[in-house]
């Protein structure tokens, strides 16, 4: 008697979220089974990879992470173009880090103009994130929405303290919202409900569950994501059926494992490969736990991750 593989059929399905406009469009989500389980269901859209661009030259990056961008770190537009043309980014993620009120405190107008310039000069959709200061991020994101009206960017981070401002601007000017909650299934759901009540369509939201790197909290992120996906699929929980994104490169490249050279840590081995693998392995964990969009940094880590996605889902 032949063995019948035990399949899992779920009642629910993750919404499809479309980012971008016209001929530069990326679709996220749309699946109805757990990560990589193509035997259980359909995955119309595989996990996508965005590459990072910063609005000012990074100061404390690991040398290995800077190398691929050395010639463009002072020019965000050139940086974004290189990410797309040379490193095949499927999306670009612009971090408006200089808007930090405790840092350079660049104004919302100036930041929004930069976002528009970057968006206009690349052939893929754009994600725009602030500095992590909730209040200022609300202001900046609202301005970005206005200046880039109609481009259907993915704008954030909307958190509990600023979601109204970002949500309203996103509705008004036709964009998607990146909503971050602190590593908790119920809090993720709660923020979706708040945005929904505000009038943001649920198929215009992507969830960021708070991302820890390998060795720095990935085990928590991993399980929260699995629980979110399971709630969405098996409990058919409408308010959970949104694709997940992970702002992961920032977390991986600040670890000592990605930064310390062999002289400082003789047992750690080759620094450049170690950093790349730290990023790629974090990415793989996030794929296995249900991400739809990874925000990555090193082109070699991206290449490896992309190959894993294609092998896992397409059998390449």
């Amino acid at each position: 008697m032949a063995f019948t593989p035990p399949l899992e059929k779920y009642a629910g399905k993750i919404r499809e979220v479309v980012i971008g406009k016209g001929d530069k469009v990326v679709k996220l989500g749309g699946h109805n089974a757990m990560p990589g389980c193509i035997f259980d269901g359909d995955f119309p859209n595989l996990p996508k990879i965005a590459l990072e661009v910063f609005d000012s030259a990074p100061e404390d990056w690991a040398p290995e992470a800077i190398k691929p961008y050395e010639d463009v770190v002072n020019d965000p537009v050139a940086w974004a173009k290189k990410a797309v043309d040379v490193y095949n980014a499927e999306l670009v993620c612009l971090h408006l880090k200089s808007t930090d009120p405790n840092g350079e405190n660049v104004g919302a107008d100036e930041a929004a103009q930069l976002a528009k310039k970057v968006s206009d000069s690349i052939s893929v959709p754009l994600i725009v994130l602030g500095s992590g200061n909730a209040e200022k991020d609300g202001e900046v994101a609202a301005k970005v929405c206005e200046v880039c009206a109609g481009q259907n960017l993915l704008v954030g981070l909307a958190v509990e303290d600023n979601y109204k401002k970002i949500g309203a601007a996103a509705i008004g000017y036709g964009h998607c919202v990146a909503a971050q909650s602190p590593i908790d299934v119920n809090l993720a759901k709660q923020l979706n409900i708040l945005l929904d009540n505000l009038g943001v369509p649920l198929d215009k939201i992507v969830m960021e569950p708070s991302t820890g790197a390998l060795g720095y909290g990935i085990e928590y992120t991993y399980s929260v994501m699995e629980r979110i996906e399971l709630a969405a699929l098996s409990q058919n929980d409408d308010k959970m059926q949104l694709p997940i994104m992970n702002i992961m490169a920032v977390e991986t490249w600040k670890t000592r494992e990605a930064k310390l050279d062999v002289d400082a840590e003789p047992t750690f081995g080759d620094l450049s490969k170690r950093g790349i693998l730290w990023e790629a392995m974090t990415a793989v964990d996030l794929i296995l736990s249900g991400t739809s969009l990874l925000i990555m940094r090193h082109p070699e880590a991206v290449r490896l991750t992309k190959e894993i996605i294609e092998e896992l889902y397409l059998g390449k």
């Binding site: 390998l214 060795g215 990935i218 085990e219 928590y220 991993y222 399980s223 494992e257 047992t267 750690f268 081995g269 080759d270 620094l271 490969k273 170690r274 693998l277 730290w278 392995m281 964990d285």
Partner: peptide, 19 residues
């Protein structure tokens, strides 16, 4: 090689620790 085993042993530790 150390540069592969460091992330791999941490991966195993992370996945197998009590959540």
């Amino acid at each position: 090689d150390a540069h592969r085993m460091l992330p791999l042993t941490v991966q195993r530790l992370n996945i197998y620790t009590d959540p």
